[in-house]
């Protein structure tokens, strides 16, 4: 099992006291499989994704990712996890503006110490970025930026790809094309994919779906 969540709880402090966002989530995901997290705004799906990514720590429960309990991991261990095990694709692309496309693509792979030039070239070709390598993020369209972000994530060959509304900032046609690329390439690397989306249409293209409602798994 690539990812196992058991009884994960999370709350955030607000001015009216702590707000419980997740009320005990159980969930599993196998390598090579894809799972869509759906739900209303505020249902806790992004929070769940961030916890799995090691960006934030749980209040209670267990997250086993690649046989490692990341709920108990310290800051450095979680940073290592983000560097080597997971890959993130954001709605806002979040490229590094000071680096050109080639450097952005290679960034995480090099950070993780597994830069593979051949795989890079293949990815760039698959994502249609060959002509854009010397450009800077601000010179790219939204679709192009998200393709770079996907390439950046996959270049590091993560075991789990986490995507947060990856097409949320793109028009439907571009979004569909980017989505197709993402699914194809994830499948090609054999990684698992956990994707947050509010679109039932997109969720339907994944292997499985988990619907969150008010911080609980619904149905």
């Amino acid at each position: 099992m690539l990812l196992t969540l058991t009884g994960v709880e999370k709350s955030y402090p607000t001015s009216e006291g702590p707000l419980k966002v997740l009320h005990g989530i159980d969930m599993v995901l196998d390598a090579g499989r894809s799972l869509a997290l759906t739900g209303e705004s505020g249902s806790g799906k992004s929070t769940l994704l961030h916890l799995v990514a090691g960006l934030d720590s749980v209040d209670a429960g267990q997250i086993l990712l690649a046989e490692q309990d990341i709920a108990q991991a310290g800051d450095a261990a979680r940073a290592a996890l983000r560097r080597g095990t997971v890959g993130l694709v954001f709605q806002q692309f979040n490229l590094i503006p000071s680096l050109d496309v080639a450097a952005n693509l290679a960034f995480q792979a090099r950070l993780a110490g597994r830069f593979d030039a051949a795989w890079m070239a293949e990815l760039a070709g698959a994502l249609g970025l060959e002509g854009l390598l010397a450009r800077y993020p601000e010179q790219l369209s939204g679709g192009q930026q998200q393709r770079v972000a996907i390439g950046r994530t996959l270049a590091a060959k993560p075991r789990l790809v986490l995507a947060d509304e990856p097409t949320g900032n793109l028009d439907e046609a571009t979004g569909d094309a980017v989505m197709a690329l993402l699914l194809r390439l994830v499948a090609q690397t054999g990684a698992g994919l956990l994707m947050v989306t509010h679109s039932a249409r997109l969720a339907a293209r994944l292997d499985a779906r988990l619907h969150l409602s008010h911080g609980r798994v619904a149905g």
Partner: peptide, 16 residues
């Protein structure tokens, strides 16, 4: 922050 957050998300500690 928007420039640092992705780098952090990609596996650099805040202390670093």
């Amino acid at each position: 922050l928007p420039q640092l957050a992705p780098v952090w998300a990609m596996g650099l500690t805040k202390a670093r």
